[in-house]
């Protein structure tokens, strides 16, 4: 009633993305122009995540540390943080930028770590990949959950030197980057266009999440 189901399944998926091992089903037509390294990167990252979080005997502290390690191995967190801030990045002072980036990372960890630690047998398979923009590859995956319909998740991967990094996640057509960008812009606007308002809100959120 309030919100459509698919809308939230979308977010659910991102939160629940715990990935899994599955056959690689790269469609040949598209794979020709897409960078095959990007799919291999996603496959490996997913396998690592499952390997880590299906081990329930890890103490929480250690599991959290593992999550952070995987997060930074897989995602270009500083890039995403900067992109999400949009035009306000250039309006921020260097000190604000530094604090914002620190808080942004903590927000991501606070939001998603719990979900990964609750891993409950989700698996994933790579459904294809295609070039996105001039520099990136969109790797399409399907997350299969123990109950409920599978969820389509696309990973926008950018190659930097020899490294691949995820710069956006699109869950059932909803870009997490765009969502966060619009949310942050709204918070800044609600605070009279002041970035300090956003930083304050982030501090509160991160502090509460512990």
């Amino acid at each position: 009633m309030m919100l459509t189901r698919r809308l939230f399944v979308a977010c659910a998926a991102l939160l629940a993305v715990s990935s899994g091992v599955g056959p690689s089903l790269i469609s040949p037509a598209r794979a020709q122009s897409a960078d095959p390294g990007a799919s291999a990167f996603i496959q490996k990252l997913g396998n690592d995540a499952i390997g880590t979080f299906s081990n329930k005997s890890l103490p929480k502290e250690q599991a959290l540390q593992q999550f952070r390690t995987l997060l930074h191995k897989g995602f270009d967190v500083p890039y995403i943080g900067r992109w999400v801030l949009g035009r306000y990045w250039n309006q921020a002072t260097e000190a604000q930028q530094t604090e914002y980036q620190k808080l942004f990372e903590q927000l991501i960890v606070g939001t998603y770590a719990e979900r990964f630690l609750e891993y409950s047998g989700e698996t994933f398979k790579i459904a294809g990949s295609q070039p996105e923009g001039e520099t990136d590859t969109m790797v399409t995956t399907q997350i299969v959950r123990p109950s409920g319909p599978p969820v389509n998740v696309n990973w926008r991967v950018r190659k930097k030197d020899a490294d691949y990094k995820i710069i956006d996640v699109v869950v059932e057509n909803v870009s997490m980057g765009v969502t966060q960008r619009q949310e942050f812009a709204s918070v800044v606007q609600q605070n009279g266009g002041k970035i300090d308002g956003l930083i304050q809100a982030l501090r509160q959120k991160v502090g509460k999440a512990g």
Binding site: T179, S186, A201
Partner: peptide
Amino acid sequence: LDFYATVRSLH
């Protein structure tokens, strides 16, 4: 941070 804005963007 702003649930209203999040829902608006998702929608």
